[in-house]
């Protein structure tokens, strides 16, 4: 974990509103673990003031710029343009100076080898699952259930397939794959493979639904959360989530940036997310 002043290697639109950026990042392929993230300084002059958090999609090497030079080590992020910071990011070009802090946070715990592993990704939430998949496929059967609103939200699925991951796509409007929510696919898969371990990342309603499904079946689950962040290192306490067993006298709050962003589902107090799902499934805690 350190602050690198570095440069953009490439920045391309891969689907409407979704971009893939490669950033020169010496050391990242050794250091970055699946599920970790970086704090990205959009431009060295202000604004925007705060850094933006992005999951590590993968790390790798590019051939050197000229013979005899070492290969270029990079970290790759995938981002969706949603606001001011990402709006500026989409205009960045090869060679532009940026700063990245990381790799940060606690990533996924792969669990025992030989298990069935199910990855559940919603939209851009698929990002931290790629590195995880590339490690898991070495010794496990891996399935990716990928959901989105429309076909435009289904990104990089072929890259997962190239790793040897079985993929199942669903969209809410039926424009690609099965029509409906990714959670209905999850229910089916868990019926068929009840001893699976689930790893999920996506919008909060999806995570709550996944948690309900896994809780009912006692399926081990890890989720990767998002939170508003200022520092990314556990100093500002802006990004806290309420942990299981929290009381006012004995606060148990967890920094998403430091104790997370990946949590085992039993670490969290799920009632904080105000979910409809909580009531539907009885909310036994």
């Amino acid at each position: 974990m350190k602050n690198l002043t570095t440069k953009v290697l490439s920045n391309q639109e891969i689907a409407p509103g979704y971009y893939r950026m490669r950033i020169l990042a010496p050391g990242y392929s050794q250091q970055a673990r699946p599920g970790q993230f970086i704090m990205f300084r959009v431009q060295l002059s202000l604004p925007p003031l705060l850094r933006r958090p992005f999951g590590v999609f993968r790390t790798g090497f590019l051939p050197p710029e000229c013979d005899g030079m070492p290969p270029l080590e990079y970290v790759e992020i995938l981002y969706k343009v949603v606001g001011r910071g990402t709006g500026i990011m989409q205009e960045l070009h090869e060679g532009d100076k940026v700063e990245i802090l990381g790799p940060l946070g606690r990533g996924f715990d792969a669990g025992p080898v030989g298990e069935e592993k199910i990855l559940v990704g919603g939209g851009i939430g698929l990002v931290p699952l790629y590195m995880l998949a590339s490690e898991l496929v070495k010794e496990n059967r891996v399935r990716l259930l990928m959901g989105g609103r429309t076909r435009d939200d289904i990104i990089t699925v072929t890259e997962f397939e190239r790793l040897g991951v079985e993929t199942y796509v669903s969209t809410e409007d039926g424009s690609l794959g099965e029509e409906g929510l990714v959670t209905q696919v999850l229910v089916r898969k868990l019926k068929k493979f009840p001893d699976s371990r689930v790893f999920a990342c996506g919008p909060m309603p999806m995570l709550e639904a996944v948690e309900g499904i896994c809780r009912d079946r006692k399926t081990p689950l890890q989720v990767s959360l998002e939170a508003l962040m200022a520092c990314g290192v556990g100093a500002c306490l802006g990004c806290v989530v309420i942990g299981a067993g929290h009381t006012t006298e004995q606060p148990k709050q967890l920094c998403t940036c430091k104790a997370g962003p990946v949590f085992k589902s039993e670490q969290l107090d799920w009632s904080q997310f105000g979910g409809k799902n909580q009531k539907a499934s009885g909310g036994c805690k």
């Binding site: 925007p48 705060l50 939170a227 508003l228 200022a230 990004c239 806290v240 004995q250 606060p251 709050q253």
Partner: peptide, 21 residues
Amino acid sequence: PKAGNPTPRIAETVSGMLNAI
């Protein structure tokens, strides 16, 4: 020990930020 406020606790503003940790 103090639990602090519910989230969201931070918001970026023009050349600054608001916090209610």
